[in-house]
Design a protein around this nucleic acid. Sequence first.
DNA 1: ATGGTCGCGCAGCGA
Length: 263
Amino acid sequence: MRLVTWNVNSLKARLERVTAWLEMARPDVVCLQETKMADAAFPHLAFESMGYESAHHGEGRWNGVAILSRVGLDDVHPGFEDDDAPDTDARLLWATCAGVRVASAYVPNGRALDDDHYRYKLEWLARLQRNLEQHYSPEQHLAVCGDFNIAPDDRDVWSTTALEGSTHVSQPERDALAALEAWGLVDVFRRHYDADGLYSWWDYRGGAFHQGRGMRIDLLMVTEVVAAATAAVLIDRNARKGKPTPSDHAPVIADITQGADDG
DNA sequence: ATGGTCGCGCAGCGA
């Protein structure tokens, strides 16, 4: 199974780039974030014509997450799998694809450490942790994929000094990610690469992409059975180049060699 | 040079 996560920064603005990339990369399961559209506007037919079933959870102007699959798309569930009040934002979508439970997650940005949105970010991550603890086992085939808006460690940012005191690198955020790892999720990219300077997001401003000023915040967080079966991981930074205007995020790809029907 | 770039949607906010 070829599994992808990609924050597309508006699927309406990006549809041509996304469909062209799907033709090239031929993934089996794709988790999209920041579709920025209502459910009624989601282009299910465009993806169906390419062989993908699709599910979307969106609200309109902001947020919005989707899962595309050509290996089955079952037990779709928008939002957290609990009985608490629904999330104010459309940031999470679950589905089962070829025996792997998949989540497409768009973790809140946080904006600033003293902002209410930062507290919302930490609460959101704690609720995701509870979702895993209540419904799943680390022995299962599980992949939580998305824009985590957290750089796991200092290798994952272009400058620690420039980012000191800002979101994405703060200890509480990194602790929340570490708690997911302690439960049993693996940042599978790091199974394959130790180097710094490998990013998935670059600001549109100031030529950040060409200056190498980025962060690795788009993650494939998978259980050990999935990580062990992952033969290769790649960030396709070519998708951040050229015209029409690319997303500010590049897609992250994992090739999972073993079938998921044996566990 | 107190800006810079996008998307949404038509002002100014969010990223």
